[in-house]
Simulated assay, not measured.
Amino acid sequence: MNLETLQKFKFERVLNEDPASHSTTVLGGFPLQDGTGISPAILRIEKLSLPSGVAENPRAIVNDFSLTESTDVYSWGLGWLKPTLERPDVKINIIHPATEVHIRKYSAQELRMVHETAELYERITKPYMDAFPPSRIQWVYDILSGKSEAEKVLFKDPSPESGFVILPDMKWDLITMSTLYLVAIVLTQDIRCLRDLRKHHLGMLRNIRSQATKVVQEKWGLADGSLRFYVHYQPSYYHFHVHIVHVKYVGTMGSTVGQAHLLDDIISLLELDSDDGPSVLERMTFTYALGEQHGLYKGMLAAQAGLDA
């Protein structure tokens, strides 16, 4: 993908506008090579954080300023930064070809909190997960095999049972430290979500925590305690992975209560678990937010009435 290709994008409609993350997500498409139509695509355009140079030397970075208002000691107005190849203004994520599932995921939608008991997991969630074709997460397997993004991998433990890779997440601009965002993806396909974790996975979980801490210390000089580790439930894809962000990171819904579960809390729960029988993560009720476009929404919402009876 290059600028020439990007300029061929045909806009269809806005899927979502998020003032908190300074991002806009739009649906459109790119012309097919044979000229017979359009291949659906999603663009997410996000304004990047201001460079540190704004504070250090505003005169060198601010290109223009227009005063809006002034009263007593307070003045405010609009500014324009000088364009430079070294400091990009926006980050653009492209999903192409985009499926109907992608479109639903990135569309603005109403949210509802639901309670998923162990019984509802077996009856509703697990069949939903089982129905996903492996092709839906082929991109994950490509990363794990080294077929794609091999040059981005920061750490790899090759053990088939407890190994994992750590690499930057596509959400990070690779520049702004306060928005640092990495992901650890396990090699085994036996763990799809939180409920699949068992006490014997503790070594792997602790190793993810320690190796990620070591990586950011060595590569970016971040001190111990600079990272927040969490796991999504429901996750966006059903292959176990851990989100690793800077402790200052404030961003998406994925980092909020109702979806994000701290890795340290998960480790503590498993440490308290019994050695035999179903794990605590199998037995407990999870409460989380579901968007109306999510495949679990209708079934899980309908099942809530039975819980209140």
Rank of each mutant, 00 (worst) to 15 (best):
G221V: 08
K219R: 15
M177Y: 01
S279E: 10
P97A: 10
A150T: 03
M170P: 04
T176D: 10
M129P: 00
E119K: 11
P51Q: 02
R195L: 13
T68H: 13
L269N: 03
Y181Q: 04
L111M: 13
D190G: 08
V62K: 02
R104N: 14
I143E: 07
L81A: 00
G277R: 11
Q259V: 12
L3M: 10
I191W: 03
R44Q: 15
E69G: 13
A223C: 12
P83I: 00
F164T: 05
L85S: 14
A302E: 15
L6H: 08
A60H: 03
Q138K: 15
M113Y: 05
G53H: 02
V250D: 13
L154I: 03
L32V: 01
V183R: 05
H115R: 14
S21L: 14
S226N: 07
S75T: 14
Q217C: 06
L50E: 05
I95S: 01
Y106H: 15
L48P: 00
G254V: 04
H200T: 12
T5F: 04
S107I: 05
S210T: 14
K219D: 09
L202T: 03
H115W: 03
Y106D: 02
S279F: 08
E218M: 12
T24Y: 00
T256H: 14
P97M: 05
G37D: 08
E69R: 13
L27N: 03
Q217F: 09
W172A: 02
L227P: 04
V250Q: 12
E282S: 12
G291K: 06
H200M: 09
S70V: 11
L272K: 15
I94C: 05
S75M: 14
S162C: 06
D196N: 13
A184V: 09
A184H: 06
F30T: 05
E110Y: 06
I95W: 09
E4G: 04
N93W: 02
K8I: 01
A98H: 03
N16E: 13
T285V: 12
V14N: 09
A309V: 13
G37Q: 05
S226Q: 10
L174A: 09
A303V: 07
L85W: 06
P133Y: 10
H201D: 15
T125A: 10
S49R: 10
L81E: 00
L263H: 06
Q217T: 08
V62Q: 05
Q33K: 11
I103H: 02
R104E: 03
G35I: 11
N16C: 12
A41P: 05
N57Q: 08
P158G: 09
G291W: 05
P133H: 10
S135V: 13
Q109L: 01
I92C: 11
R195T: 13
F164Q: 06
K91R: 12
S236Y: 02
D64W: 02
L281Q: 09
G295M: 07
D276Q: 15
E271N: 06
